[in-house]
Design a protein around this nucleic acid. Structure first.
Length: 556
RNA sequence: GUGUCCAUAGCUCAACUGGAUAGAGCACUUGACUACGGAUCAAGAGGCUGGGGGUUCAAAUCCUCUUGGGCACACCA
């Protein structure tokens, strides 16, 4: 595929001897397909931007004939594509290239990505799920552009809260206790601990035994966390989110990892001990926005604190992959990750790249478990499915469970992805369940309409293509942009750019669908060309949706 | 208090990371259903981009002050 911006840049270099001149996409149709602002290109001979743009126009040699027109508009110079050749080129490329959209940026390199890692005592809810979705999106994206992605999940099976849960499980649970029951047990034991101090003592007793290698206690913890993780992952699987590697936090306590880290930090002269006997890493010299630049690593009884175990886990991940290593965490972890990164730097390694996101608000408020201001993922999915069923009933259409799931997933994913990563998602049922206008359903509906036409119209290979409508040029131009959109995501990590792109392409198609006949077109060349266009639109829509982890349906 | 992120139409969000007249959806108003599937399309109305100052040919975007919110700030994970 031709990179027109680069082509223009090379020609401009020949004319002005300036490299990488900014080539933009003009905001309006009458401004052409590519444009170059000439304000910054003034020099001693060309004193005004207008002189520059005129000079470029007079000296630009379009030897390949890509442009049908080059115009000067004020201080901009605008390039108009020669659509006759452009349209055919793009459509042929899309039809023939099985990985259209990818420039193979990953080149089969391995990439490690950690996301979600929910505490075992918690259930995936709309807030937490933002982590999983961003993680899944990144995994799909990296994989799409040719990385070999490994998705990691860290099971925090050793904290105080899991010890509480174990106590509750032993007191009230039985062999039939499920993951969902666990949440109630956890709330119950927390309430009890407020009036009964022996619970906290027992919890610490268990933790201590665990950390000192008591095999029986270890088994208990393992059994409990297995139930929880199984429950969590099956909910996540229901929205098509999967992991390759699960790692237990406790593993790093049972082997020598944490001890080794303390030794290494000691050798670097950053391991200090406070009055009470707690060990901490001295991070002075690093830009850590805390009151004092330290990271506490152990309790006074020498048992490990979470950061120490987390460092051990991070080293484990870096050992598997030191180059492409990513972690998705909420914005509340930013300072903490700076501390971890500092320690990793002291150990002369490169910390994982942090992708952080802002929280999800519920009707403008922060989600709070204790006030019941929380939307569990499974509950939300049920609500959407019920609403969808009603919609199908009014149309007298039978729908299967699988398609219901796909549509419900599309709903929630589109809603969550449509907001920039560092802005809060303001979640409300009304908008999330909306099936009209900008929504996941709208995109899937577009594909259903395409399918409907393709079913009764076959595509003949090798036909010559001809596009005569302005909207066809616009659609093809949009299709051409797809690989560049994908490429930009690698640096911005913004799923919202992709939802915008999908929506724009789908609206263009809808307008096309309403205004240009396809099946009923009598000119065979035009008809075949339009069928090819539909195939191309479908292919790009489907690829983009796949990056967002959204599947498509044949009918709805 | 210090650091950091955010504030754009009544509501929910965009704006190619400094470019041309700030764009969409919902809601509201009007038009198109004997339909290539109306979960749609065509159109209307809606803005001092929280406020002040600055840098620039050019600011929603950068700097500064200010107002209102989120998050973090040693022994939780």
């Amino acid at each position: 595929m031709i990179n027109y911006k680069k082509y223009i840049q090379e020609k401009l270099f020949n004319i002005l001897n300036v490299e990488n001149i900014s080539v933009e996409n003009p905001p309006k149709e009458n401004m052409g397909d590519f444009s170059v602002p000439c304000f910054n290109l003034r020099n001693e001979e060309l004193k005004t931007p207008f002189e520059v743009s005129s000079y470029i126009k007079d000296n630009f040699v379009d030897d390949k004939g890509y442009f049908k027109e080059i115009t000067v508009m004020g201080c901009y110079i605008n390039f108009f594509l020669n659509y006759n050749s452009f349209d055919t080129l793009v459509i042929n490329e899309i039809i023939n290239n099985s990985s259209y959209g990818s420039f193979n940026q990953g080149n089969n390199e391995k990439l490690l990505l950690e996301h979600t890692s929910i505490n075992p005592n918690a259930s995936p809810h709309i807030g937490r799920i933002r982590n999983s979705l961003i993680g899944d999106f990144l995994g799909n994206l990296f994989s799409f552009v040719g990385y070999v992605v490994e998705r990691h999940y860290f099971i925090n099976d050793i904290g105080k809260q899991i010890s509480y849960l174990l106590l509750a499980y032993e007191k009230y649970g039985n062999s039939k206790t499920t993951f969902k029951d666990m949440l109630e047990l956890y709330i119950k034991i927390n309430a009890e601990s407020k009036v009964d101090s022996s619970i906290e003592e027992k919890a610490f007793y268990y933790l201590n035994e665990l950390e000192h290698g008591n095999k029986e206690v270890r088994e208990k913890f393992k059994h409990l966390t297995d139930i929880c993780v199984e429950g969590q992952t099956s909910i996540l699987n229901s929205i098509d989110i999967h992991f390759d590697i699960f790692t237990h936090e406790s593993d790093f306590v049972f082997d020598d990892s944490t001890k080794n880290i303390l030794d290494m930090l000691n050798k670097k002269n950053v391991l200090k001990e406070d009055d009470e006997g707690r060990k901490y890493a001295d991070l002075s010299g690093y830009d850590i926005p805390t009151k004092s630049p330290v990271l506490v690593l152990t309790r006074k009884d020498n048992t490990s604190l979470y950061p120490l175990r987390d460092i051990a886990y991070t080293l484990y991940k870096l050992k598997r992959n030191s180059n492409n290593n990513y972690i998705v965490l909420g914005e509340d972890q930013e300072t903490y990750m700076k501390q971890i990164a500092a320690v990793i730097d002291i150990l002369e390694l490169k910390a994982p790249v942090l992708i952080s996101y802002s929280f999800v608000l519920l009707n403008g408020d922060k989600m709070a478990t204790r006030d019941g201001k929380i939307v569990l993922l499974e509950d939300f999915l049920e609500i959407v499915k019920t609403k969808l069923k009603e919609e199908f009933n009014t149309r007298n259409i039978l729908v299967n469970e699988e398609n219901l799931s796909i549509l419900a997933n599309a709903c929630i994913k589109y809603t969550m992805y449509n907001v920039s990563i560092n802005k809060c998602v303001n979640f409300n049922y009304k908008d999330a369940i909306s099936f009209t206008g900008e929504s996941g359903i709208y995109i899937l509906y577009s594909i259903v309409r395409i399918n409907s036409i393709l079913k009764s119209n076959k595509y003949d290979e090798g036909v010559s293509l001809k596009y005569i409508n302005n909207i066809e040029h616009k659609i093809i131009k949009e299709l051409y942009m797809f690989p560049y959109i994908i490429d930009s995501l690698l640096t911005t990590h913004e799923a919202s750019s992709l939802t915008s792109y999908l929506y724009k392409l789908a609206t263009l198609f809808s307008s096309y669908y309403e205004n240009v006949p396809i099946s009923s077109e009598t000119d065979e060349v035009l008809k075949a060309s339009r069928i090819c266009l539909l195939i191309s639109i479908k292919k790009v829509l489907t690829s983009a949706l796949a990056v967002l982890g959204i599947k498509t349906v044949d009918k709805m």
